[in-house]
Every structure is written in structure tokens, then in C-alpha cells.
């Protein structure tokens, strides 16, 4: 017998590339949802590998809340250019201006939930039949039941009872007009797998993942970046801390961790020994126990 064996990163890579190629083969208007965060960076990096030397056959789509970290947007534009991909941006601000959604108010105001409308509108406008995202099953309990090919009805909604069984590596992308799929090639990756892969492949990521000094404020025990988009409560004040971000979302709802991790090795060590989950400091997930599940059903990423 042979003793050929793949290590975990190569096996995960092989699985994700298979899924990405299946999307290119089975769908007419696939897009890759690109936010500039580490997971969508890895997804797009794998897409480049999957189709090399041809260009990536997916348009990149970013739903911009207008509340992003400027560092992320800068990185997004550079990365897309490096890959030679086409980027389409749709703005939550436009959805607000058109009266499709209304802005939340108060100190906890966030545009996170509003993205869903902008995204579902963009999917309809661009006739998208497959939207690839970087979500992972280990992130949150409602994600633990996601498929690689996740079926969405004509309103973009996720119905957990109505998902297709996925067996072996046979993915059924057939759908009726108006329906679409969300595709999650990184389903089986965990946070540490992502960082190990970034290190192994020497992939560039936005600098805010590394330790830096920043103006922040503390709310309910979590540290948030101070910016023009936030409103401080009466007992809250701005201070300067050495922090990094484990996950990147809107500036208004992404918590930071105090950290001196300045390189990938430090980050891997920190993630490996951390006693808290990655999304533990995302306000958007903490609104209620089923916050992410509710947003997913409505058509969120």
C-alpha cells in the first residue's frame, strides 16, 4: 500500500478549490463577496490558484456600509488590483437615500443589519445566481449547519429545513429562476487554519490585524475603535491602547483585543491560546442569542 497523506491545510485547500471550480462550472453569474477581511482574502487567494493561469472567473462584490476601517478599504482596492479582478461596490448609503432602509439611531446604532437589503438588491440587479462568501462553520452556532451550497429562495432567505443534503463531493447547484445559492468554500476551516494558511502561503492581510496603537473606548467590557461613526455614552471616554482586531467588520461593531502580536507567528500563538471566540466581541452577534441566525434567515451573509 502507498502511504500518501495530506496535511490538514492541503486537504482543506483541495476541498475549497474543488468547491470554487464547481461554482464556475455550474453557475452563470457567480460573484465573490469580498470585504477585505482575512476569510474573503483567503477565499479569493484560493480562487486565483484554482483557475491559474486564467483570471478568476468571478466578479468581486463588496457591500460597503460606509462605516469600514479606512485601512480595509485601502487594502481591498490594492488586493483586487493585484489579482486583476473586477470589483463592484454597492453602498448601504444608497439604500438609505432611496428609502429602502432607514438608519438606526442611538448609541448602539449600526449599519450591519442594513447590509442585507443592499446585498439582496445587488444580487437581483446583477442577476447573481451564486454568491461566494468566506463564512466558516466554526464561527457561530447557526453557521454550524450551513451547506457548502446553501440554497436561498427568491427573497434571498435561508430556510434551514429546506436545505439539500450534500453527499460525497457531489454538489447540486440546480435552481429555479430567481433563486440563488450562497457558496461557502471555507466551511471546514477554523480561525487557526486560516492564520496557519496565511502564514504558510505568505498572504498579505490588512495591517489592523496586527498590534497597533489606537484611540479606543470601552463598552460593556469590549474595546471599540473611536471614529466619526460612533457616539459615546455619557460614562464612556476615549483612551489610547495597544490593540489588534481578530475579525474585521464595521468600525461601529467590531471589538478589538489588547495584543502585542506584531507578526503572523504571534497571531497564531495568540489564537491558539485564546480563551475567547473570534466573534465574542462583535456587537452585531450579541444583540440577542439568535442574532446571527435571524439575520441569516433574512438574507445576510
Amino acid at each position: 500500500m502507498f502511504s500518501y497523506n495530506l496535511d490538514h491545510l492541503r486537504e482543506l485547500e483541495a476541498e475549497s478549490i474543488f468547491v470554487l471550480r464547481e461554482v464556475a462550472a455550474q453557475f452563470e453569474h457567480p460573484v465573490l463577496l469580498f470585504s477585505g477581511g482575512k476569510d474573503s482574502i483567503v477565499a479569493s487567494y484560493l480562487a486565483r490558484k484554482a483557475f491559474y493561469p486564467a483570471p478568476i472567473p468571478f466578479t468581486f462584490l463588496h457591500v460597503d456600509t460606509g462605516h469600514n476601517f479606512p485601512e480595509t478599504i485601502r487594502f481591498r482596492d490594492e488586493w483586487v488590483k493585484e489579482l486583476g479582478a473586477e470589483l463592484i461596490v454597492r453602498y448601504v448609503q444608497d439604500s438609505i437615500d432611496k428609502g429602502r432602509v432607514s438608519e438606526e439611531s442611538g448609541i448602539h446604532a449600526s449599519r450591519n443589519a442594513l447590509q442585507t437589503t443592499t446585498l439582496v438588491d445587488a444580487i437581483e440587479e446583477l442577476k447573481v445566481d451564486a454568491a461566494i462568501g468566506g463564512a466558516r462553520r466554526d464561527e457561530e452556532k447557526s453557521r454550524a449547519k450551513e451547506r457548502f451550497f446553501s440554497h436561498r429562495d427568491e427573497f434571498g432567505q435561508w430556510e434551514p429545513r429546506n436545505q439539500r443534503p450534500e453527499l460525497w463531493s457531489l454538489f447540486n447547484g440546480h435552481h429555479r429562476k430567481g433563486e440563488h445559492f450562497r457558496i461557502f468554500p471555507l466551511s471546514n476551516w477554523t480561525e487557526i487554519d486560516i492564520w496557519q494558511y496565511i502564514k504558510k502561503e505568505n498572504i498579505r492581510v490588512p495591517e489592523i490585524y496586527f498590534s497597533h496603537e489606537r484611540d479606543v473606548f470601552v463598552r460593556e467590557g469590549n474595546i471599540y475603535a473611536f471614529s466619526d461613526f460612533v457616539q459615546l455614552g455619557k460614562d464612556e471616554h476615549v483612551s489610547r491602547k495597544v490593540i489588534r482586531f481578530r475579525t474585521i467588520g464595521d468600525m461601529t461593531c467590531t471589538g478589538a483585543v489588547e495584543s502585542v502580536a506584531t507578526n503572523l507567528e504571534d497571531i497564531i500563538r495568540e489564537v491558539a491560546t485564546s480563551r475567547y471566540t473570534e466573534r465574542g466581541s462583535r456587537i452585531d452577534d450579541q444583540r440577542s442569542e439568535t442574532s446571527l441566525e435571524d439575520r441569516k434567515r433574512a438574507g445576510y451573509f
Binding site: R137, S142, Q163, T190
Partner: peptide, 20 residues
């Protein structure tokens, strides 16, 4: 798992878990 499952005390679907 999901809200619907907790409400009805059932498990709907295959869930995936990870550890190393």
C-alpha cells in the same frame, strides 16, 4: 443549535463541529 430547534426540543439537521 438553532432557535427553532430549542423551541421544539428537536434537532433539524446535520451540524458540523471542529476541534483539534
Amino acid at each position: 443549535g438553532l432557535k427553532a430547534e430549542r423551541e421544539q426540543g428537536i434537532t433539524i439537521d446535520v451540524a458540523y463541529r471542529y476541534f483539534s
